[in-house]
Structures are given as structure tokens and as C-alpha cells.
Amino acid sequence: MPTTTTTRATMSTAPTPAADAALLQLIWLASPALPVGGFSYSEGLEAAVDHGRVHDEASAAEWLSHQLRITLARADLAVVGEAVQAWRNQDLDRIAALNDWVLHTRETAELRLQAEQMGRSMLEWLKSLGRAVPGAREGGSTMPLTYPLAFAFAASGTLAAPRQAMLAFAFGWAENMGQAAIKAVPLGQGSGQRILMRLAAEIPPAVDAALALAPGERQSFAPMLAILSARHETQYSRLFRS
């Protein structure tokens, strides 16, 4: 039976209400049920299926794993991590620069529209909860606030560390992409969960890689993804908007 000392020590290291609240807020932000439209995009996966590059569970898992490490970690995750702190510091010039970088590195029209639409929807959702949100031209930017910056803004209102916000952003992406694979390949729910399990294991090192990037090392260079996304814009039959 545990001693009183042990019990008190355990209680002293228990999560605080503030830590619990931060965790729950991040889970909320990562939820695929969040009304930002993430379910309507496949980010080129549907075109990869149409061209035979993705055709089963293994190839879908490999495609998304590569996308996580090659594009998400080197671009959006790095932006989210930096933007969370920039929002807290009210560094609006830095926010504007990061937002412009996201828009300028979207290689196709539909990928840019996704970033804009999901960012706009995130801000509308925050407004519906009564939270004051920044304008689209905040900090001198003349461009719409994109999803990575809008997500970072939402996360900056919690007590979560930037790394935790990045983990939530990546897991939300993984859930949406897993569901896109289920619909597009198509796959069963079990396959979708195995893909999500693989991605969940790869997310922490991807986030750490993103954190290690200097601002000048960020990049969004994935030629095959860009080609497939461009082809998807005129694909004959489509389930997804990207």
C-alpha cells in the first residue's frame, strides 16, 4: 500500500487544471470535426491514386509518410512553431512575413485556395466562440491569413508550448489525410487506422526536424506533388477539392 509521502509526491506532480485545459484545447484544434473544411482536401493524394502511384494501404502509407517528412515538416510545421511565439509576442511584422511565405510557396492554385479557405474558416470559427481575431491585413500583409498562421493564432491563446501546437497541427493533418486515403483508394477503416498509427509514430521526429530548421532553411519543394496537384485541377472525376 503506498505511503502518505508517496501519495503526496504523486499528487504534487499531477497535471494542473491549466495544463489539462491546454491539452484539451489542442485536441479540439486537431479534431477533424473542426469546421475548417480539412475533410474536403486530399492535397494531391486523389491525383496520385488516379495516376496509379497510390493503389493500396502500403502505397498510401508510404505516400503520406513522405509528404509528412518532405513537405509538412520542412514548411508548414516550421511556420506553425515560429508563428505561435510570434503571435504571443505580437510581432505582426513576422506574422505577415510568414503568411506571405506560405502563400508564395504554394505551387498550384488549388493548394493556395486550400490555405486561404481553411485559414478564413478557422478565423470564422474563432469568432463564433467570441474570440477577437486578427484581420486579413494584420501587420501590413496584403494577403489573406493562411491556415498555418490561423492555426498558430488559435494555439497561441492556450498555454501549450510551440512544439505541442505543432504536434496537434500534424496529427490533425494525419487524420484528414488518412480519411482521404480511405475514400480515394478506397480502403477499409482498419487500413486507415494502421496508416494513422504509422504517421503518429513519425510525427514527433518530423516536428523535431521542423524545430531544428533555421528560417532560411524552410522550403516547400516537392515537384511530383506539384505536378499531381496541377493535374488534379482538371481531373475528370474528383471527390476532393485538392
Rank of each mutant, 00 (worst) to 15 (best):
G188S: 12
Q235I: 03
L167H: 07
S59I: 11
G37P: 04
Y236H: 11
A86T: 03
W28C: 01
L159N: 11
A200S: 10
E110F: 00
F151G: 00
R231W: 13
G81M: 02
H55V: 10
R163P: 01
M224P: 00
V79E: 04
A155Y: 04
L225D: 02
S128P: 01
T16C: 07
Q189N: 10
A48Q: 03
N89I: 00
E107N: 13
G130H: 09
K183H: 06
G135L: 06
L26T: 02
M177L: 11
H232L: 09
P223I: 08
E175V: 15
P223H: 06
E175C: 15
P162V: 06
L126R: 10
G172N: 07
T4N: 10
A160K: 07
A115L: 01
F221T: 14
T16E: 06
A132H: 11
G52Y: 09
D50N: 14
W101C: 03
A161G: 06
L92H: 08
L72Y: 10
G190T: 13
G188Y: 08
Q85E: 14
S229P: 02
F240L: 03
L145W: 02
L103V: 06
A226H: 02
G130W: 04
Q189R: 09
Y147W: 13
T10L: 14
I70G: 00
S42N: 05
L113S: 12
L23I: 12
L239R: 14
M118W: 01
I27N: 07
T142A: 11
R69D: 11
R131E: 14
N176K: 10
L103M: 10
E124M: 13
L26D: 02
A222V: 11
A209H: 08
D50P: 00
L34C: 05
L92M: 11
L167E: 12
S65Q: 09
I195K: 01
A168Q: 05
P223D: 07
K127A: 11
L77N: 03
A155Q: 02
T71R: 12
G52L: 12
S42H: 03
A75S: 15
L23C: 08
H51A: 11
A214F: 09
A161M: 07
S191E: 12
P223C: 07
R238W: 05
R53P: 00
A170H: 08
V79P: 02
E57L: 05
P204E: 07
L72I: 12
A206F: 03
S65L: 10
H51G: 00
A78F: 05
P134I: 08
R137D: 15
A136L: 02
L77Y: 08
M122P: 04
T142V: 13
L24P: 00
Q25E: 14
P148R: 05
F221V: 15
G172H: 05
V49C: 09
L159D: 15
L187M: 11
A21K: 05
A18S: 14
L77H: 06
E43G: 06
R120W: 08
A73R: 04
Q179P: 00
S191R: 00
A97F: 03
L77W: 04
D91M: 01
L149F: 05
D208Q: 12
D50A: 15
D93M: 10
W125Y: 11
